[in-house]
Amino acid sequence: MSENVHDRALKLVAEGRVEGLAQSESDWLDAHLQDCEFCNEHARQTDRALRALRTAAIPLPADLASRTQFRVRLRAMELREREPKRRMLWLACAASWIFGMASAPYVWRLFAWFGRISGAPKIVWEIGFGLWWTIPAAFAVIVMLVESTRQSEEPDWMKPGR
């Protein structure tokens, strides 16, 4: 038998265990293994090795699960404590935004009146009004940017769809 035949047989032995073989290849291999003691022994060794891997017993450390459950519950408590703070932050942000929208006409008049009595140029009190009105929005944008920066720092494998 040529060396190529044995090479093909050994390749198929591995392929059969890793990916599976087509019926024709499997038939060819079976026929070859019946005739060739060397390749047959190789196939037996491979099967023995895989059996050993499948049956290898690992001693599990004592209480590993309960220790982990305890740690996970503690961490869950910490996370739950943090949640109301974040909710409060968003509520405060939303409330100030709504208040800002509702009070804008009055505040505009207030700024105009203040500009008149102080003699400040129109552009100054207009900028002042703009700043006052955009503070909640700017704050919300900053919070969102911080959040998205934190998200983007996560490795790709942690993101959905991986």
Partner: peptide, 29 residues
Amino acid sequence: FFQETWIRVLERGHQYDGKSRFEAWLFAI
């Protein structure tokens, strides 16, 4: 690493979409 993996599962569990096998996601973490 065993303990740390489960902490990550708790923290990032919302990222598991249930479309792939859980153990594959667990091993990746």
